[in-house]
Design a binder for these strands. Structure first.
Lengths: 335, 335
DNA sequence: AACGTTGCCTACAACGTTGTAGAAATCAGG
DNA sequence: CCTGATTTCTACAACGTTGTAGGCAACGTT
């Protein structure tokens, strides 16, 4: 049995609005009235109906987080941080899985769940700037690489800089034939493009040639794709002495393929990844990686959303950058 | 700018209710009227307000999934399957992270988000039967080990049987000093208790002694706990020739600790896990494990919830069992 | 031709909440 | 003890939707 304000009001002998005032912490309520109401609330185990409240107030206290796939560890870890950060604002998080397809992402962004949520934190893969431009300017924060000239707030990390830095680290270790795994030619591959740019920058800065043959593409960024790409590199005969994988799951797949080929990491081939997922801290060998500050990304995203909700909805879009650092582990340590 | 039924109605020159009828697929609407309304809907990009609909109908089309931690791969993979299964019913999934604490779980179960969701799929760690008994009988499906005599539907797998089977597999390989990692004495450890029972059953059936010294506890089931427990076993001098870890992340941690100790897997020590997370298919060595049918678990849970929502809410609680199978991989393969 | 039936549509009320307006009670200051 | 301000509370309307009841045509049946 569910109770309403009306039931509480009758039990406490006050008006419905007075109960509402107590629930909402309105100050001008006599202490004894408040006590009576609170007692009635407790006795009936009353809980506000959020839909009704939303209908009236226009706020649900629910935000959505949309990610391509939940069982990609990076997104799972990110989701955890977003849920935690949102809790500080009293928000519940509705998590949506887009699958990464452009059409599905458009549906999510345009808001199938429109009226149930106050705002959206969105990590798009395939969405283009035009897609975004066609939408209502609902409160939305984008995560990840910039969708150029998009009208929404976003939180990014410096993909180019991070990729340059970790590639330079490999060069600093004396590696000269550095492969890259994860390149993508599709429009979805914004992260891939930026990381490839950083990789190429670092090579150029060190006076090394950019060799097409050392760059392997991967349509998705799962372990299996990393393993397949690594096998491809090995059979093509390019003999790399290091590999920069554009994320950690690719790198874990690459480790596996190197292991199967009988090559030692890092002695024969050094391997680095990107994302700092937990797996990489326990893999054999442990994985050197770029560690974006996921907690900070989540916090910034939630804060941006909060400001957008409370502030001017038409204010100019903002871009915040979250820090990262290199995590040096066994997969690059020269013994 | 957001539009309402009223706006569409004015534009199409019909009543509000007729628009509602079109939106809801009511049959008795003349084709030309329907066309006019649909045109107006498209022009205004109308989308129903879910809160208002919920307030009126008592259904939101949103269900919640509550899991202890999202970045535990097992739960992330499960979440993915639940989202997929729910989509077939036209449901959106709100994902809640409980942290696994009893108090937080009670809050979730009692329904902070009560009125926004139609039902709850819940994977509890710490919740007790008494906690559950104190709640309204809202539509709820529990996942995982049984909370004895709980009033809610649940979907389980045969933990005891699966643990017995995989332990027997180790015995069949000729292993005799089989350790177990993941035992828990806390009331939270229902899964741990069941898996330990299966382990002990298998030993007894093979005429092997159950040796306390071979059973390592782990307060949580993360990689770090598995690594720590394995190190503990190794330094205690019990010299196991196989280890049954109560989940895959524990096993991955154990692999790591064995590697650091210079022991070979499976030659010196065979390792098995439980859950079949993706990591175990690419770890070095790949991990033999119990593979619960996660897709089936998710589908059964969603179906149970659907039946509970449509059917008699006071009907007796049901318990469904999902299948599992053994995945034999490198970590137990005798070379 | 009168009748009931069906198809199509509309008006109204209600879901549970909160903002607004204002009434009644209390207080402060002369 | 009067006046005006403040505190405390209430009645009412509205948020956007859908169920109910009912009206008016058009149809088929006697």
């Amino acid at each position: 049995m569910r109770h309403r304000l009306k039931d509480v009001a009758e039990r406490a002998g006050v008006s419905v609005k007075t109960v509402s005032n107590v629930v909402n912490g309105y100050v001008h309520v006599r202490p004894d009235t408040r006590a009576r109401v609170e007692e009635a609330i407790a006795e009936l185990n009353y809980r506000p109906n959020l839909s009704a409240r939303h209908l009236r107030k226009g706020r649900t206290g629910v935000i959505a987080l949309a990610v391509p796939e939940l069982d990609i560890p990076y997104f799972a870890e990110l989701a955890r941080h977003v849920v935690t950060a949102a809790a500080d604002f009293g928000w519940t998080v509705l998590i949506d899985q887009t699958g990464g397809g452009r059409e599905q992402e458009r549906v999510v962004a345009s808001g199938i769940t429109d009226h149930l949520i106050d705002g959206l934190i969105f990590s798009p893969l395939a969405l283009t700037a035009e897609d975004l431009a066609g939408l209502d300017n609902r409160p939305m924060v984008l995560l990840g690489e910039r969708v150029d000239h998009g009208p929404a707030d976003h939180v990014v990390i410096d993909n180019v800089g991070a990729a340059r830095e970790i590639t330079s680290h490999l060069i600093g270790l004396g590696r000269r034939r550095i492969a890259a795994i994860g390149s993508q030619r599709t429009p979805e591959g914004a992260s891939a493009r930026l990381r490839l740019t950083g990789y190429a920058d670092a090579l150029r800065a060190a006076g090394l040639d950019y060799d097409e043959a050392l760059v392997a593409s991967a349509s998705a960024w799962h372990r299996a794709d990393g393993a397949a790409a690594m096998r491809g590199l090995l059979t093509s005969g390019v003999r790399p002495d290091a590999v920069f994988c554009f994320n950690d799951t690719l790198a874990l797949g690459a480790l596996r393929a190197l292991h199967e080929a009988g090559l030692r990491v890092p002695e024969d081939v050094a391997v680095v990844g990107f994302d700092d997922i937990e797996d990489g801290r326990f893999s054999i060998p442990t994985l050197t990686t770029v560690a974006p500050d996921k907690a900070q990304i989540a916090r910034l995203a939630v804060e941006l959303l909060a400001e957008r909700l409370d502030g001017d909805p038409t204010a100019a879009a903002r871009e915040l950058s979250a820090p990262y650092r290199l995590e040096l582990r066994e997969s690059t340590q020269t013994p």
